[in-house]
């Protein structure tokens, strides 16, 4: 499992400066210290160490695997979020939470607790998600609705569709195959879902850094006019980003279904803004054209560690309920963002 944590940190940090020779060491070190991925990674490790001190059980291998499994849901859902944000134009997809729920609900009804037609269920669920993505893209690209508003409105539509589809009472449950993938112990003592996340992460990082699609995505995000004038089909790139976003949200929803086994209508709600937070903590700027998926992976892990730390410290629960945990979560988020997520000064 260390693969997943160590792998991002190592090749992720010395991106372009890797070629710089010795004289640049000083500035390289400084750049390294300012790198969002490094900062977030250190904060995540720090939080994890604190959690391990508070409760030694936290440091156990099983606990670690559980933590990473929980982080994987956010991580997978945030893939699409990262793509959309990088594509720029105030890109953001707030409908990922609702889309994830939609995938889980459709899949669970088709699966209904058996492996027959597993593939069909997955395809139908992901197909439904793609429809959401297409509608988002059409709204943003054709009708020029700001992405924030379009995807916000889609939450209402998707939630309404879920209500219509289920009649308010979701049925069915996850197929055993899906449950094994998420909870079972498949390969080398590591749950299949983590292998899946690792595979997806490698795929996405490759897509962003080494594929023409990735280059175009950054070009469009950094400056749509120059990209357009350089012959990039900006609309097609953004269209792909929104559809992929819904698709990955759907995959995340399926994994959530495997974890929760039964569905409920607020299954994915928490992932709406947390996926944005994960991307931003990982150094993907909301202006677009900046960032990458490795940062998002770290961001997802950081947020998950923070949440479990607060749970372990038993802040919240008891007479005060959830409240103190929420408050501390928000404060820590601001502190982490302050470390580097700041915008440029007006005076330069």
């Amino acid at each position: 499992m260390n693969v997943s944590t160590a792998e991002p940190a190592a090749p992720g940090t010395p991106e372009p400066p890797a070629q710089a020779p010795a004289p640049a060491r000083q500035s390289r070190l400084r750049r390294l210290l300012r790198d969002p991925v490094v900062i977030s990674g250190s904060v995540a490790v720090l939080l994890w160490a604190v959690a391990a001190l508070v409760s030694p059980a936290f440091a156990s291998w099983d606990q670690f695997l559980t933590l990473m499994t929980v982080a994987s849901f956010l991580g997978v859902i945030a893939i699409g979020q990262t793509l959309v944000i990088i594509a720029g134009g105030e890109g953001i997809d707030l409908s990922v939470g609702a889309t994830a729920t939609l995938a889980a609900i459709v899949a669970s009804r088709f699966m209904d607790g058996s492996d027959d037609g597993f593939l069909a269920a997955v395809l139908v669920a992901l197909g439904a998600c793609c429809v959401v993505g297409v509608v988002n893209a059409v709204g943003v690209l054709v009708f020029r609705v700001p992405p924030l508003v379009m995807t916000l409105g889609m939450i209402a539509v998707v939630a309404g569709f879920i209500r219509l589809y289920t009649g308010g009472r979701p049925e069915g449950s996850a197929a055993p195959l899906l449950r094994t993938l998420v909870k079972g112990d498949t390969v080398a003592g590591i749950p299949g879902v983590l292998w899946l996340w690792l595979g997806l992460a490698v795929l996405v990082v490759w897509l962003l850094r080494r594929s023409p699609f990735g280059w175009r995505l950054y070009a469009v995000g950094a400056n749509p006019t120059t990209a357009y004038l350089s012959g990039v089909n900006t609309a097609a790139v953004k269209f792909a980003a929104y559809v992929l976003s819904s698709l990955f949200a759907g995959v995340g929803g399926l994994l959530l279904l495997g974890y929760a086994e039964n569905v409920y209508t607020s299954l994915g709600t928490d992932y709406m803004l947390n996926s944005v937070a994960a991307a931003v903590i990982g150094g993907t700027a909301l202006v677009g054209g900046v960032g990458g998926y490795l940062g998002t992976v770290i961001g997802a892990i950081l947020l998950t560690v923070l949440d479990s730390l607060l749970r372990i410290m038993q802040i919240g629960g008891g007479e005060w309920g959830d409240a103190p945990r929420q408050i501390i979560y928000g404060v820590v988020l601001i502190i982490v963002l302050t470390a580097y997520g700041r915008q440029k000064r007006l005076r330069q």
């Binding site: 953001i92 929420q326 928000g330 963002l337 700041r342 915008q343």
Partner: peptide, 29 residues
């Protein structure tokens, strides 16, 4: 938080919404 710390408003106010929501639950569970 937005003007002083220069955080991006969307994420910054998401973080503060968690704080305010928590406080609301404290005041009126």
């Amino acid at each position: 938080v937005v003007a002083g710390l220069r955080l991006q408003p969307i994420v910054a106010t998401f973080a503060t919404s968690s704080v305010f929501g928590g406080l609301a639950l404290l005041v009126l569970p």
